[in-house]
């Protein structure tokens, strides 16, 4: 199999891969940092409310201890939520550490679905995932794999209307795994066509393939076929 870094147009392909990877990294880190910002804003308001209540006692207002306890619990809950988002951000950042590594595909699918959830919410669509129950060791490029999955989800976004549904399912194949993103058919725009071509390129880099098939009225399935193992970065 020829690699992306060889043959005619290799330099252009490699530049495209780098640009798209950087763009994807930017979108995801921006999204996660927005989530963190929201949590910080909530904690800030809750601690501000505690200050307000304490300031009120100086003016003779009685302190409602039950209320203070509730606010304190809400702060703790949001701190935990913030920790989880930071953990996801950290995992995502480290997924780009090595071009190929051993990892659990189930964990990766869980992570990418949670990350994409906010993007879906902002679009006003729901994202549901049927994840495997057992761990699935795989040797591949986790960063590119997330990029491919989110790319399929973004294609579905392009044709989506409010309250549409996107589902992500997983299946085992002899040679590896199949990830299917089913949702609204993409809008056919130049950007979507370009994304489709890019995804095909990305899947080639992952040693796999992508196919699209209609799944009903205005709905399509994008299937990513991934090998169980790639021994080295394809490029």
């Amino acid at each position: 199999m020829s690699t992306l870094g060889e043959g005619p147009g290799a330099e252009q392909r490699m530049r495209l891969m780098r640009e798209k990877a950087l763009g994807f990294f930017a979108v995801i880190t921006a999204s996660l940092s927005h989530e963190i910002n929201n949590v910080v804003a909530i904690i800030g308001e809750l601690s501000g409310l505690l200050d307000d209540l304490l300031a009120g006692t100086e003016k003779g207002r009685p302190l409602d201890q039950e209320k203070v306890k509730t606010i304190s619990e809400r702060i703790a809950k949001n701190v935990k939520k913030g920790e989880q988002i930071i953990k996801r951000l950290n995992r995502f950042a480290h997924s780009a550490d090595e071009p190929v590594k051993d990892f659990d595909l189930r964990e990766l699918l869980e992570q990418v679905t949670t990350i994409a959830q906010r993007l879906a919410t902002l679009k006003g669509v729901s994202l549901e995932a049927e994840l495997p129950e057992v761990s699935l060791p795989i040797r591949s490029n986790p960063f590119s794999m997330q990029q491919a999955i989110v790319g399929c989800i973004e294609l579905a976004f392009s044709g989506s209307r409010r309250n549409d549904k996107i589902t992500l399912t997983f299946g085992k194949e002899d040679a590896g795994a199949k990830i299917t993103v089913t949702g609204p058919t993409h809008d056919g725009s130049e950007a979507s066509q370009s994304m489709l071509s890019f995804l095909a390129l990305l899947m080639r880099d992952l040693g796999g393939t992508m196919e699209a098939s209609p799944a009903g009225n205005d709905t399509q399935s994008l299937m990513l076929h991934l090998p169980k193992s790639i021994e080295r970065p394809a490029n």
Partner: peptide, 8 residues
Amino acid sequence: EEELVSTL
């Protein structure tokens, strides 16, 4: 953000 708006 329900929690933000109610606290505010």
